[in-house]
Design a protein around this nucleic acid. Structure first.
Length: 801
RNA sequence: GCCGGUGUGGCGGAAUUGGCAGACGCAGCAGACUCAAAAUCUGCCACUGGCGACAGUGUGCCGGUUCGAGUCCGGCCACCGGCACCA
């Protein structure tokens, strides 16, 4: 009898051996096929590792380990996304430098990940807070600045009235400050912006060439929000001015019965003298500005507005004079800040027209426009629309667009919901923005040789009460000279957001210690793009989009060799508490991965997290489920007592083994880890049923299981005296022909109901199978058979009347 | 409101993509071992009726296509996630 399975001895032993042997270091071996697998690097929070982390990490570790055994040169790195607010807040509260907090947290995270036996190439570890790293984050920013993609502008920011500090959107929860609960208001502040909108078209169009799961593509497309339409000019009656609107439905132009401008529209002040009710309009504008986000969205159903008295517009297609209203349902930040309202065919315009009793003119037949706006573009025919009458929506769109172009009244236009990226944070713990402001020269880039521009030591990381970054207090650091004219200048004191360092980290893994460029171009050519990137859905419209944008910019600059950073993107589901709710301290349902490793072992945790359910769906934790997985590993361990000499598969087990190799090999690639593990459990059950197994039978099980449970399989490999290490072996092959049983059980159905089971040879002809099926149910064959079906290896169905 | 996802035993979940619904695991029940318990091993385990062979019902609901539907089509319902006056 073997001694009991003891992961506490086995796991540290192999973790040390793998480190010593540099088992998972990925060299630049250009002769081998490469595979670059990536998981999102964690933010090293003070809480330590969460049980949610191992789910994606184990999944990609499985793929990486399997592909290595299949002969791939695999890059599977790990690092730390370590700038960020929680660290800074913790530092402020406890008077410890964020650098020290970060170092401690990273140390803890690393030891936790190490204890889980991941095959990360630790030689390539990166940390976004390392000056050797953010040197290149700053360098990329400078390239963008030089190309006009980074610019400074006045932007409203979220201002906490309690903390007197600017907040990131993520820190504003339900209109109040996440930390102190005080109301958050909008405050104008000068901000650095990145022109992601310049890449909007490519960020949508290039998705087609990528192997991203569909919901990621859809979410990115919706976020970018491209729409095709036209800009149309409406002449103001009696004025030498035109009001320009954007519409996606130029075909409904004849139905435009009024216009609406946003409260911030410049015409309100420009035509101040003509507006008879100017006071009323301004009062409305001020009321709209005071509305909180909550009022603007939650109370959106109730339309408000004021009719501008004194100026009107002329509908360009029918010459009708129509009123102009001001309402906050029109946003200054989208399109032209003005719309033509077609209440018959737009829900919002309809609601507004009903409330203020404005005319509703049907121009597309097919609905009842007095009851509801008719917005269907697939059906319906143009009416009351002059030369467009009788056309479909699609035809009318084309005709009106040509008409407008011909008369110089309007042009086709594409708009996006996507806005430029607010890149400034008034915080300490981030990358300094490498720009100085000179009275004479304006904003000037610091010379590249001065990079990295290191974060100075400050006395206090507390934000200032003016909303400036803590760096603003560092007068000796702030006051500098202009690299352009040599005159006095001030450094930018805002820092970059956390998204900066994570926008390009996958490039740095390729060549993490290079101090002359981002990474060696030859190495990038070999490793890029990332073959497979798994991460959370919550990063789809921020991190994932931002990093695609940066990569495309670097591609245009000739820095990186591929137009896209990631070829394939998959996503994991969340791990919930035992009660099915999200894990949180307040709910008291948090599971600490350290406890699971202590009690059951890392291999059990890994196996359980892969067995818990479909990888892309949320799954609730179950302590009993963990025990079940430990039981499975115990059974694998104890199989060693049943092993006999022999370097071939046991004949009776051969089919099952080939089937299992096939199933497990496919399931790992398709992220169906739960069914792959189930198949190995079945194989283990078969081995026990057989009572004895050869070394070869055992070996194949160990290799298949190795990616999921690397420590126990490495230990058993050694105990069985197999050559070398299991991490150096090769992945088993299966023979398709041998996955099929000689005799197969087939169901016999009568009118679709199973009435008998028969055994037929796998290669039986339809006629033979049907004949055997008839024989098996002959007692029930009372009517005439009108149809006979044989699905090879599955069933016989006899239809009788 | 719009977009996306999910709905299968007591529970987590399978089902070769139109072919035997419930693999695998958990829990439960019975038995073996034990003074006993734990652990381990063996067997049973969708529901209803029947001692039983067996029969009927069953994949959120209603309808359809098909020899055959968890899977396809039409119409609903519930829950989860994202966006939210984007003209």
């Amino acid at each position: 009898m073997s001694e009991a399975y003891n992961p506490k001895a086995v796991e540290p032993k192999w973790q040390k051996i793998w480190d010593d042997e540099k088992a998972f270091h990925a060299p630049h071996d250009y002769s081998k096929p490469k595979m670059y697998n990536l998981v999102e690097f964690p933010y090293p929070s003070g809480q330590g590792l969460h049980v949610g982390h191992p789910r994606p990490y184990t999944a990609m570790d499985i793929v990486s380990r399997k592909r290595r055994l299949q002969g791939y040169n695999v890059l599977f790195p790990m690092g730390w996304d370590a700038f960020g607010l929680p660290t800074e807040n913790y530092a402020i509260k406890n008077h410890i430098h964020p650098k020290i907090v970060t170092t401690n947290n990273v140390k803890r995270f690393k030891s936790q990940l190490h204890a889980l036996g991941y095959s990360f190439d630790w030689e390539r570890e990166v940390n976004t807070t390392d000056p050797g790293y953010y040197h290149w984050t700053q360098w990329i920013f400078l390239q963008m600045f030089k190309k006009g993609l980074a610019y400074k502008t006045e932007m409203p920011i979220n201002w906490c009235t309690g903390c007197k500090v600017g907040l990131a959107n993520e820190e504003v929860v339900g209109g109040v400050c996440e930390r102190c609960g005080s109301p958050v208001v909008q405050k104008m502040q000068s901000q650095w912006m990145l022109k992601i909108t310049a890449y909007a078209d490519r960020l949508i169009d290039d998705l087609d060439s990528l192997d991203f799961i569909e919901r990621v593509k859809v979410q990115q497309k919706n976020w970018i929000g491209r729409s095709h339409g036209a800009e149309v000019d409406f002449q103001l009656a009696g004025k030498d001015a035109k009001l320009r609107v954007y519409t996606t439905r130029p075909d409904t132009l004849f139905g435009a019965t009024y216009m609406v401008v946003s409260p911030e529209h410049p015409y309100i002040d420009q035509f101040k003298d003509d507006i008879k009710n100017y006071e009323e309009v301004v009062a409305y504008r001020e009321a709209a500005a005071r509305k909180s986000d909550f009022e603007r969205t939650e109370l959106a159903k109730d339309k408000t507005g004021v009719c501008i008295d004194g100026i009107t517009a002329i509908n360009p297609v029918n010459g009708k004079e129509i009123p102009i209203w001001v309402s906050d349902y029109v946003l200054m930040s989208y399109g032209t800040g003005a719309i033509m309202a077609v209440p018959a065919h737009d829900d919002r315009d309809w609601e507004f027209a009903k409330k203020f009793d404005l005319p509703i003119i049907e121009v597309i037949a097919g609905g009842n426009v007095q009851e509801a706006a008719f917005t269907d573009v697939e059906t319906g025919t143009l009416v009351n629309s002059g030369f467009l009458n009788g056309m479909s929506v699609a035809e009318a769109k084309k005709a009106i667009t040509e008409f407008l172009a011909e008369k110089g009244l309007g042009t086709p236009k594409t708009n996006f919901k996507l806005r430029d990226w607010v890149f400034s944070r008034q915080r300490y713990w981030g990358e300094p923005i490498p720009i100085v402001k000179c009275e004479k020269c304006g904003y000037v880039a610091i010379p590249e040789e001065e990079l990295p521009l290191e974060l100075p030591e400050v006395d206090s990381y507390m934000p200032t009460d003016t909303g400036e970054s803590p760096l603003a207090h560092m007068t000796e650091w702030v006051n500098t000279t202009c690299p352009c004219c040599g005159g006095p200048a001030k450094r930018e004191t805002d820092t970059m957001p956390q998204w900066a360092g994570s926008s390009w980290y996958f490039l740095r893994y390729i060549d993490p210690h290079n101090d002359t460029c981002i990474a060696d171009p030859e190495a990038m050519k070999y490793w890029l793009p990332v073959d497979w990137y798994n991460g959370g859905m919550e990063h789809t419209t921020l991190h994932l989009l931002y990093s695609r944008f940066w990569h495309k910019f670097l591609y245009d600059e000739g820095v990186v060799p591929t137009p896209e950073p990631y070829q394939k993107r998959t996503s994991h589901g969340m791990i919930l508490g035992e009660n099915g709710e999200k894990m949180s301290k307040s709910r008291g349902n948090v599971i600490n991965p350290d406890d699971i490793v202590n009690e059951f072992g890392a291999d059990t945790l890994r196996t359980y997290e892969m067995f818990i359910g479909a990888f892309d769906l949320a799954a609730a934790w179950s302590q009993d489920g963990v025990k079940g997985c430990r039981k499975f590993l115990d059974r694998v361990w104890k199989l060693q007592d049943l092993v006999t000499e022999g370097n071939a598969y046991t004949p009776a087990l051969e089919t099952k083994i080939h089937q299992t190799i096939k199933k497990v090999s496919n399931d790992y690639e398709e992220m169906k880890y739960n069914t792959g593990i189930a198949a190995m459990m079945t194989l283990v059950n078969e081995y026990y049923k057989a009572g004895t197994l050869t070394k070869e039978d055992y070996k194949v099980l160990l290799v298949l299981l190795n990616p999921v449970a690397p420590h126990i399989t490495e230990e058993l490999w050694e105990k069985m005296g197999f050559a070398g290490r299991i991490y150096q072996t090769t992945w088993p092959e299966y023979d398709e022909a041998k996955t099929v049983e000689a005799m197969i059980e087939v169901a016999v159905q009568l009118n679709g109901k199973v009435r008998a089971k028969i055994m037929v040879p796998a290669d039986a002809s339809a006629a033979d199978a049907i004949a055997a099926g008839k024989e098996a149910v002959k007692d029930r064959l009372t009517g005439t058979i009108v149809k006979e079906i044989y699905v090879p290896g599955r069933l016989v169905n006899l239809v009788q009347k």
